[in-house]
Amino acid sequence: MIITSKAMNLDDGPVRSCFQRRRQNFLVDFPSRKNGHSMECHSVLESAYCIWLEFAPQVVRYYTQPLTFTWIDAEQRYRYTPDFLVVLTHGENYFTEIKHDFTKQRQSLLTKLESFHALCFQEGWSFKRRNQQRITGSTMFHTLLELYSRSSTYNQQRQMYCLHYLQQRVWPTTLGDLVQDSAAPDIGTICYNLFTGRLTADLTQRLTLDLMVDWAPSHE
């Protein structure tokens, strides 16, 4: 039984503030392009999860610490704030809890998460758990992180030039050849187009000058 009655007003920002600046428990501002402003994360790992949300094409928008739920399960009262609410295309969404290692959490927290999972199933919501290995343990994550970090110089004017350049060049090519071409867009714009899929490459590989890059005209 849910006894939280307050409607979600997601434009107000996180409902839970973090005042304790302990190790792995401090505020990190993540510069989100999908949201158009920085997202207040409560750990470096939460900010790392944002990289995947920015990359996933089905993610339209996301919120940190979106709403505090209060409910009763088997006469036990619970209070819980998910780390993320992720909004997908066609109006679907899911909540996410982030922890470095769920096997090392207190049993009381694990019981609460299991109860919230059941509550989500009852209400027709989705709930996911993501640990450090799942978020940052792959080569692909580090490639995406580097692309996202380097693409901070992207802007619409540079992108217009890039689209014109893509149509003139012979494909495929290597990232090194692109970087060495004096007529090519700046590296930030190239990284932006790789991150967003306008330029295609095997992003499960490390980002090196030998990375093969391809482009095809959009049919949109």
Score class of each variant (00 low, 15 high):
residue 33 R to G: 14
residue 215 W to E: 12
residue 219 H to K: 05
residue 175 L to T: 09
residue 113 L to V: 01
residue 94 Y to F: 15
residue 55 F to S: 14
residue 88 L to H: 04
residue 77 R to F: 08
residue 127 F to P: 15
residue 186 D to L: 04
residue 31 P to C: 14
residue 113 L to G: 05
residue 37 H to P: 02
residue 35 N to L: 02
residue 68 T to I: 04
residue 130 R to C: 03
residue 98 I to D: 05
residue 61 R to S: 10
residue 52 W to R: 07
residue 28 V to R: 01
residue 179 V to I: 14
residue 171 W to P: 06
residue 203 L to T: 04
residue 54 E to I: 12
residue 162 C to T: 14
residue 202 D to S: 00
residue 101 D to P: 12
residue 44 V to A: 03
residue 53 L to E: 00
residue 158 R to Q: 13
residue 139 T to E: 15
residue 159 Q to N: 15
residue 97 E to P: 01
residue 82 P to H: 00
residue 26 F to Q: 04
residue 182 S to M: 06
residue 163 L to Y: 09
residue 37 H to E: 05
residue 183 A to F: 04
residue 106 R to F: 11
residue 5 S to K: 10
residue 77 R to M: 14
residue 164 H to I: 08
residue 207 L to I: 10
residue 188 G to P: 12
residue 120 C to I: 01
residue 201 A to Y: 01
residue 72 I to G: 02
residue 23 R to A: 08
residue 31 P to Y: 08
residue 103 T to F: 13
residue 2 I to M: 02
residue 140 M to H: 11
residue 59 V to F: 00
residue 119 L to P: 01
residue 218 S to R: 15
residue 93 N to W: 03
residue 85 L to Q: 02
residue 149 S to A: 14
residue 75 E to K: 14
residue 33 R to Y: 14
residue 166 L to Y: 11
residue 14 P to W: 00
residue 3 I to Y: 01
residue 131 N to D: 15
residue 182 S to H: 12
residue 73 D to R: 05
residue 75 E to A: 05
residue 21 R to N: 14
residue 199 L to I: 05
residue 75 E to W: 09
residue 73 D to E: 14
residue 108 S to I: 14
residue 70 T to A: 15
residue 44 V to Y: 05
residue 204 T to N: 11
residue 76 Q to S: 13
residue 148 Y to C: 11
residue 69 F to P: 02
residue 206 R to Q: 09
residue 141 F to G: 13
residue 24 Q to R: 12
residue 76 Q to V: 12
residue 118 A to M: 11
residue 36 G to C: 09
residue 198 R to H: 11
residue 42 H to M: 08
residue 77 R to C: 13
residue 137 G to F: 08
residue 123 E to P: 00
residue 34 K to C: 04
residue 83 D to T: 01
residue 200 T to A: 13
residue 217 P to T: 01
residue 103 T to P: 08
residue 65 Q to K: 04
residue 83 D to P: 03
residue 156 Q to I: 10
residue 114 E to P: 03
residue 139 T to R: 15
residue 104 K to N: 07
residue 88 L to I: 05
